[in-house]
Design a protein around this nucleic acid. Structure first.
Lengths: 235, 235
DNA sequence: CGGATAGTTGAGTTATCTCAAATGCAGTGG
DNA sequence: CCACTGCATTTGAGATAACTCAACTATCCG
């Protein structure tokens, strides 16, 4: 069983080997809530197909999307130890997911060192992503945030074999992009428009194509002192 | 051994029971780097006294502080499985910390189910904090961010018995506060000034006092409307 | 004393937001 | 099949939170 992003084939037989029989496949229509925050739940889900969001909503309507969940991703590892999952999980598209009983999943994990280590690495990776998000939101411009979002999605989808010719399905609404980048839908529209007019990307019929990868990367890292180097470097 | 924030007494004998003898106490002067990002290191440290920061720096000088490390905190759990710790760890004040060999710490952890679970919970808590930071940076105003930073520090210090009468030592420079809140030092100065003129807090001689906790909470959660006060105006 | 580091304050700038109107598009029901 | 309603998106104009720059003061420390 792979708990690391991209390791799990997004098919139905994906998530578990030794305890598939203890899981249920569920289907959730687009825009529906998958998991309420601070609500008691016995279950933990892994996305098998479709996109979902994990977000935190403030009482006055503001909200921040913490991550987009793609096939193979676990909806809230946080739910493993606590009966409440913390963030709000919602389906972007129609989503199918495999659902496990919390207690069972936990005991299987705790009994197998290798799985446990995988889960820990997974959690560490999530933490790293969260840290990067904080940098994006705290210190990067709208252009950078949007370019980076696109590039990251592209990478993650590529790992799953869901990108062809720099094109991939892109079901996000602009208000969702806004909530993910800490911007306003209006501003997202403007900046996305600029990126398209500059021929860096194209968005059409819910598909996104990266037209100029190197340039998009430059915009995404407006800081990079263009080092073109000839070998692997680390510092 | 307590891996959860606040569980560890901030004394020297704090961090380990069964393997204290395998650790070294280190002292780092203020402003010095404790752990370089992306640099190979055999060691993992737990803060025993003093404050430190965990941050990510962009090549062009922008930086985002991800968290302040207080006595009892682990400097980068991420370092447990990877030889590089990711963020940059720096001492704010003089810091003393207990340092373990990565491999040894890891093997002890993996061999004891209870410790492992504690560590996992700890990691989940860190993730939760990171998520909240993202909400702050993405969706909250400067006033909110600063009030919340102060309140969170107060809570964490209180758990450690380091708060008396709503007062605690506050060694942070305004540029550090700026890097933690995604703001500019100049703007931090202005907003902090307002909070003080409004008698919500007082900062003097590296000590911070919360003068009006309920009101500060309200500002931190902007659920509430502007309160009129008759003191000096702020513009 | 002189030089570095911090903090404050004011003036002007800018990135991003708010509001609003216009367009498109997709699904519904008559 | 069409009118209708509800979402999404685009675009413009004006407002504002936060930024930059710069000058001034205070503090620390050798």
């Amino acid at each position: 069983m792979g708990l690391c992003e991209g390791e799990i084939a997004p098919s139905n037989s994906a998530a578990g080997h030794d305890f598939d029989h203890r899981s249920i496949i569920q289907t959730i229509p687009a825009r529906r809530t998958i998991c309420h925050p601070n609500e008691w739940s016995e279950y933990i889900s892994i996305i098998c197909s479709g996109w979902a969001t994990s977000s935190i909503a403030l009482p006055d309507g503001r909200r921040q999307i913490l991550s987009f969940l793609l096939p193979g991703d676990i909806a809230s590892l946080a739910g493993l130890f606590e009966p409440v999952c913390g963030p709000l999980i919602e389906a972007v598209t129609d989503v199918s997911c495999r659902t496990f009983k919390r207690g069972e999943l936990k005991s299987v994990l705790l009994s197998r060192q290798d799985l446990l280590e995988k889960m820990t690495r997974n959690l560490l990776e999530e933490k790293k992503q969260a840290d990067e998000l904080a940098v994006d939101l705290g210190r990067r411009t709208a252009e950078e945030r949007l370019s980076r979002l696109i590039l990251k999605l592209q990478e993650r989808l590529a790992k799953r074999g869901m990108v062809r010719n720099q094109s991939f399905e892109f079901p996000l609404r602009q208000w969702q992009i806004a909530d993910a980048t800490g911007l306003t839908p209006v501003h997202v529209s403007k900046v996305l428009g600029e990126l398209q007019r500059a021929k860096l990307i194209e968005i059409k019929e819910r598909w996104l194509t990266i037209l100029d990868l190197p340039e998009l990367r430059r915009v995404a890292d407006r800081c990079v002192i263009k080092v073109h180097f000839s070998g692997p470097r680390t510092g």
